[in-house]
């Protein structure tokens, strides 16, 4: 058991490290690591992964919540959507056949690999003050904000509230069903749909991941999916790995790492889909 836990810790450390370097989070690789790598039942794997997701999200958010870029109000409002989705996703996972979950997981992995390779246009929504259709609701929700950039204060207004809210429900469902943070999807909801500046989107997304994962973790914990012996090395490994990754991120070229990571994730995706289709999982 000691060797098993030590190997698991090393794997989680690596997952957290790479996850924070690529911005995808360690969650997407924990489930394949446990199921394909260690032969763990996917239900234990999902519960364990959620624990890792909460640890990294809360650890990272504690550092930059003070910086003032993320928008607490927009985050709180959208958390209604993600937590509702998360509960629905977790409830779905209690009844869905495990091989179906594996196949869905594989496709989400493929999608994550694609997203991690997409070049990021950072200032698309910067200084976006034009108001959308929902002027009254936006006023009521105070759904605008401002943040500090190198070029001074920038203001922005939210667009497509309904579309963004729907996308957040979907992000919550996937998070609850698969035990991942689904940060990439949250960023898409805010950045591409709601036209929130990229930096505000990524930081607010990370801030929301912990609460979203906590909503489904409650269901998983009370249904006996979260095992202490599996969770111990994964939580500590992912947490330490992501902290090291965040330190290195500031002064390193991540393009090569992204490509390697995308290839690994793609291979894992096919492995998950195959195992799901032949009902090996």
């Amino acid at each position: 058991m000691v060797t098993f836990i030590a190997i698991l810790f090393t794997g989680a450390l690596f997952a957290g490290f790479i996850g924070s370097l690529t911005g995808l989070g360690g969650g997407v690789v924990i489930v394949p690591l446990l199921t394909i790598g260690f032969g763990v039942d996917i239900r234990y794997a999902i519960g364990t992964s959620l624990i890792g997701v909460i640890a990294t999200s809360s650890g990272a958010a504690s550092a930059y919540v003070k910086e003032g870029i993320l928008n607490i109000r927009i985050g709180m409002f959208l958390e209604i959507a993600t937590t509702l989705g998360a509960i629905a996703g977790a409830a779905l996972a209690l009844f869905a056949p495990t091989h179906t979950i594996a196949v869905i997981f594989g496709f989400v992995l493929l999608y994550s690999a694609l997203v991690s390779l997409k070049p990021k246009v950072e200032d698309q929504n910067e200084d976006n003050q034009k108001e959308g259709k929902y002027v009254r609701i936006i006023g009521l929700l105070k759904a605008k904000g401002s943040y500090m950039t190198a070029n001074g204060m920038k203001n922005y207004t939210l667009h497509h509230l309904t579309g963004g809210f729907m996308m957040m429900i979907l992000a919550g469902i996937l998070s609850g069903l698969l035990g991942i943070g689904s940060g990439a999807m949250k960023v898409i909801a805010m950045d591409s749909i709601m036209k929130i500046p990229f930096k505000v989107s990524t930081t607010t997304s990370n801030f929301m991941i912990g609460v979203t994962a906590a909503a489904s973790a409650g269901i998983y914990l009370t249904r006996g999916y979260i095992d202490p012996v599996l969770s111990m090395p994964v939580m500590l490994g992912v947490l330490i790995g992501s902290l090291i990754g965040a330190k290195i991120l500031i002064r390193s070229q991540t393009k090569k790492i992204r490509i390697v990571f995308a290839i690994v994730v793609t291979l894992l995706a096919f492995e998950m889909i195959y195992n799901g289709l032949v009902k090996n999982i």
């Binding site: 624990i51 909460i54 640890a55 609460v211 906590a214 202490p228 969770s231 939580m235």
Partner: peptide, 23 residues
């Protein structure tokens, strides 16, 4: 041992909940 770990995991899950209570 395992009961203490599980308490730690419960604290971890409660952390974002505490953040919402504080908000």
């Amino acid at each position: 041992g395992r009961d203490i770990i599980q308490l730690g995991l419960l604290v971890l899950i409660a952390t974002p909940v505490a953040r919402v209570i504080f908000a």
